[in-house]
Simulated scan of single mutants.
Amino acid sequence: MQEIPTRVLVDALVRADDTVDCGELYAVAGRLGMSDQQVRLTIKRLTADGRFVQEGRGRRAVLRSTSTARRSFEPDVEHLTLMYSQDAGLAPWDGLWHLVGFAVPERDRLARASLREALLRLGGAPVQAGLYVSPHPWERDVRREAGALELLDHLTFLTTRDLRTGYVDHPLNLARHWWPLKEVAEGYERLADLATDRLAQLAEGGLGETELLTVAIELAAAFTEATEPDPLLPPELLPPSWPGVHARDLVARCWSLLLADRQPGEPMLFSAYAGVVALITSTPD
């Protein structure tokens, strides 16, 4: 069973009117192995933090969201577009490496640490101290992150087709050297295992509303967990039979079945993944 934090579960059940039905919340939480006490404590913390307002008591209560921030399960459309375009062979690599170098004074070490985190989040890899690389044209995003940290003056951008580290110069070997591809692949293998099992359940049919919600949330959580650390390297830089392609296809097939009988008032999670399925089905093979 996919392990999901209770806070994340609450986030996943927010509907278009910014409410969470607590009866639904307790029912899905129970299927995921969470106790009622766990749910009550989470609701108490979320309301104390000001993220939700509770109306009513117990399972008949309604939580009303006070936040307009992007939900933890809401897919990043730009990220997904690149992901599935690469899977379909529509985004070939041009062989160009994009590098960012920086030398930030010690007095700005906290901002420097935040910049490093941002570069990793954007799919970059450290080549050596103060030098990061990506196969993607990430300059716009890096400038945005560095500008927010007031570090743009400390950055240098360059591109090259001739890159080596030590004796390693083949792009496949460089990618294996710089990015944790083994760990990313293992994450996709776990996602594929879950999606294979849930696809069989969905294909068999007969699942109730609570069961369908549970499957949807498990899939969304596992998809997020597998894709967030993925730098989305072009296929030219990945080992043959990269498990990410198969896992993402299985998830898309699961969501096609989940969305086949959509109900009014369902959580926004369903609308978000409807966009994912639309993106995939509009991408030619």
Score class of each variant (00 low, 15 high):
Val39His: 01
Thr6Gln: 04
Leu151His: 02
Ala272Pro: 00
Leu25Cys: 12
Asp285Glu: 09
Ala216Glu: 04
Gly244Tyr: 00
Leu237Trp: 01
Asp285Asn: 07
Gly130Thr: 12
Gly206His: 10
Glu24Arg: 14
Leu131Thr: 05
Val168Ala: 05
Pro5Thr: 07
Arg112Leu: 02
Val10Asp: 00
Gly89Trp: 03
Ala125Thr: 11
Pro264Lys: 07
Leu32Asn: 04
Leu131Arg: 11
Thr210Arg: 07
Val62Lys: 02
Ala226Gly: 13
Ala113Phe: 05
Leu250Ile: 04
Asp36His: 15
Glu183Ser: 15
Leu152Trp: 08
Phe270Gly: 02
Tyr132Asp: 09
Arg57Cys: 13
Leu174Met: 11
Pro229Ser: 11
Pro5Trp: 11
Ala118His: 09
His170Met: 12
Leu46Ser: 00
Leu110Phe: 11
Leu212Phe: 08
Pro5His: 10
Thr159Lys: 12
Val215Asn: 01
Arg31Pro: 01
Thr196Asn: 03
Gly33Cys: 08
Glu228Thr: 15
Ser72Lys: 14
Gly95Arg: 01
Asp94Phe: 08
Ala129Trp: 15
Pro137Gly: 12
Pro243Thr: 08
Pro235Met: 11
Glu74Asp: 14
Gly95Thr: 03
Asn173Pro: 03
Ser271Ile: 03
Ala48Tyr: 08
Thr68Tyr: 07
Glu266Met: 09
Arg144Lys: 15
Ser67Cys: 12
Arg121Glu: 15
Gln38His: 11
Gly89Val: 02
Glu145Ala: 14
Trp97Ile: 08
Thr19Tyr: 05
Asp230Thr: 12
Glu74Pro: 06
Pro240Leu: 10
Gly208Met: 07
Gly23Trp: 09
Ser241Tyr: 03
Ala148Thr: 14
Tyr273Glu: 02
Tyr273Pro: 01
Leu155Arg: 06
Tyr84Pro: 02
Ala48Cys: 11
Arg60His: 14
Thr283Pro: 01
Gly275Asn: 14
Thr68Phe: 15
Thr227His: 08
Thr160Asn: 05
Thr210Cys: 10
Leu152Lys: 00
Ala125Leu: 13
Ile43Arg: 01
Ala111Pro: 00
Glu106Ala: 12
Ala125Phe: 03
Asp11Gly: 04
His170Val: 14
Trp179Leu: 13
Thr281Lys: 10
Gly50Met: 02
Lys44Leu: 07
Ala226Cys: 13
Ala12Ile: 07
Glu183Val: 11
Trp255Glu: 05
Ala200Glu: 11
Ser35Asp: 05
Asp141Val: 01
Val168Met: 01
Ala175Phe: 06
Ser72Asp: 14
Arg248Lys: 13
Ala221Lys: 04
His98Cys: 07
Pro126Cys: 09
Ala103Asn: 14
Asp169Lys: 14
Arg107Leu: 07
Ser35Pro: 11
Gln54Val: 14
Arg109Trp: 08
Asp197Leu: 04
Leu82Ser: 06
